[in-house]
Amino acid sequence: MIWLLIIFPALIAGLVQGLTGFGAVIIMMIFFPSILPMDKAAGIGGIIMLSSVLALTIRYRHEFKWKRVLIPFIIYASVATWSVHLSSVLDTHVLRLMLGGLLVSLSLYFILSKSAGSAKYPWYIAGCFMIISGFFNGLFGIGGPLMALYFLSLSSSMPDYIGNIQGFFLIDAFYITGIRIAGGILTAPDIPYIIVGMIAAAVGTIIATRLSTRWDLTTLKPFIYGFIGLSGLYYLFF
């Protein structure tokens, strides 16, 4: 039963990551906390995501732009470094409710407003996205939804969007995993779960890349906004 709760979520996570550009850890965190402590579940999910993110980054490597990714990553990672150790101090239930409410509100706004998402965000809005995403990435391993909105606002095509957001998450995955290993959150006994999960996630990503070649960014945006809303509902009710 434990292995099923690793393999199935990782497979679906790889599929979701390949189609929307984010969300792998969200899917895994629905299941993993039932068999693992919260901080370890987030850490294992983050490493499992590496297989999907690496494959997508390589596939869309020609679209990756360092200038677009570097500053957001510095802000995001600085906050995540601080928040990664807070899960034992803060009331994470209240924080999940706050995040859920924010994501549902943003999802509804972007789905209902025809003009939303068609322009770049002001620097202070973009900065808030980076800070909030980094904070929740450190706590739960989940920083994707708001960063997806940020990179969507700058992208002109599906490859442009996927190439930059996956490059961002690849750098983040190596960095935050190093922090978790140094802090003793991830240890050697976790390796079998990680290897099996990475294989399952890679299979899901292969399926997703075959499907995504048929879609453009305009077609994909409603799915991304909808998944952000579903993520928010999960945090509100579970």
Rank of each mutant, 00 (worst) to 15 (best):
L56E: 14
T57L: 10
I58Y: 13
R59I: 05
R59M: 05
Y60I: 07
R61V: 09
K65Q: 15
K65N: 15
W66E: 04
K67L: 07
R68W: 08
R68Y: 03
L70C: 07
L70R: 03
P72E: 03
I75Q: 03
Y76L: 04
S78Q: 02
V79H: 02
T81R: 08
T81V: 12
S83N: 09
S83C: 05
V84G: 05
L86M: 13
S87E: 12
S87V: 15
V89G: 07
L90C: 02
L90E: 00
T92D: 10
H93R: 15
L95G: 05
L97H: 00
L99Y: 10
G100I: 03
L103G: 04
L106P: 04
S107G: 01
L108N: 09
I111N: 05
I111R: 11
S113D: 13
S115Y: 05
S115G: 02
S118P: 00
A119S: 14
K120T: 15
P122W: 04
W123T: 13
W123E: 07
W123M: 11
Y124P: 01
I125E: 06
G127W: 04
G127C: 10
G127K: 06
G127H: 02
C128L: 15
C128K: 03
F129S: 07
I131C: 03
I131G: 00
I131D: 00
I132V: 15
S133R: 02
G134T: 08
F136R: 03
N137I: 10
L139Y: 07
F140Y: 13
G141K: 10
G141L: 11
I142F: 08
G143H: 10
P145H: 06
L146S: 05
L146H: 07
A148T: 10
A148P: 07
L149Y: 09
L152D: 12
S153Y: 10
S153T: 13
S153P: 12
S153D: 11
L154Q: 14
S155Y: 04
S157F: 01
P159V: 00
P159A: 01
D160Q: 04
Y161V: 06
I162A: 06
I162H: 07
I165R: 01
Q166A: 07
Q166V: 02
L170G: 05
I171H: 11
D172V: 14
I176Q: 13
I176L: 14
T177W: 05
T177Q: 02
